[in-house]
Design a binder for these strands. Sequence first.
DNA 1: TACATTAGAACGAACGTTCGGTACGGTTTT
DNA 2: AAAACCGTACCGAACGTTCGTTCTAATGTA
Lengths: 203, 203
Amino acid sequence: MTENPGSSVRGAALRKLVLDTALERFSRDGYFNTSIHDIRRQAGVSIGSIYHHFGNKEALAKALYDDLLQRMDAGLAEVMQRESGCRARCDGIIAFMFRAATEAPQTMRFVLEARHREFLPDEPPVCSSRPFRRMRECIEQGIQAGEVRPMEIPVAATAAFGGAIRLLHLHLDGVLEKPLAHYLTETQETAWRAIAMPPADYP
Amino acid sequence: MTENPGSSVRGAALRKLVLDTALERFSRDGYFNTSIHDIRRQAGVSIGSIYHHFGNKEALAKALYDDLLQRMDAGLAEVMQRESGCRARCDGIIAFMFRAATEAPQTMRFVLEARHREFLPDEPPVCSSRPFRRMRECIEQGIQAGEVRPMEIPVAATAAFGGAIRLLHLHLDGVLEKPLAHYLTETQETAWRAIAMPPADYP
DNA sequence: TACATTAGAACGAACGTTCGGTACGGTTTT
DNA sequence: AAAACCGTACCGAACGTTCGTTCTAATGTA
């Protein structure tokens, strides 16, 4: 475990340690199955420290949530800046999500699977957070540029990324036989087929 | 409210009343934000009755979960029996889910959004439940029949229904502008485009 | 009478949180 | 330079509340 009885950890390092521990427990057992005392024990810090840094349990979860969403958004922003054109960007977004779910499954689980509204009642739903808005905007631009069929935005956006996201869920639930990367290119191609503008001589 | 102080409700009717109340509260506030005492108060029954019929809180949730999954599976079975051919069945499945999410949003929320593993630790993930297995089988048969492109089953299945399911989530989160039905046919067409076998003279 | 069902007061455990306290570096006062 | 003071960080025993559950008595039903 991450026991740390001597507690040489202080300040910002302690804050980070608590956040890391909270992520591990929240994503594994869920928010309500994890007590502050659990986090205290595993992180090897005191109850007082946790309350000093975060105020209360809900604020700890919110700090974690904001942190992860922002990191995820930064990743997507980097994709959007590196790639140009809707197709390349969609592929990049899907690849990024697959990589994130493989390398940081706990983060992905907490962002994607947790029912945030149950413990953060004032938070808007995940689907209206920055990362998800970015995906929708990408599709909107694709339609305007003529790369993507003209269609209802929600339909296009969910068609483009819904398959990939469901595959992510399967991966996080441990029901996929092969590693995520094995399904990447096929997922990208399939997603694009669903929304791509057909060639001009299409029947 | 569903107050019922006089309590003429007994036996099977009482059991049903408790299940209905539990569904409403679980889907609105979540399992952990709903206490047995809450359900008792709203249903107008006694603590003793609840424990007599269900044993404990977890078993109540499991009874509800099994009930809803079975009802959903029956709906899907009916679609599979009525329709023949992969395309018609996929369309039927998506239409069924849209209808269910519109007419019984609480049911859909509990089946689709709740993190069951957090309160039913011994339950397999939703994605391996009967209804979801049915969807995957439908796609598998489509591939064998030559209606669907030969591809990895998980990719094909998530491509076929992932978009629709994400749209369901958007609907349940209340972020869609128009009623679900408005997006139905476009969702069906888009899903099919993603997985359909291309015509023989395809480049 | 016998059995199944309902009633609700009571209990113990677990939880989130509080609060009086220590430790310590920096700043002001003497 | 020493003393007094201050604010921040950390500690953990203790508190009040809530929750799931139990238990015994009462009640309806056959």
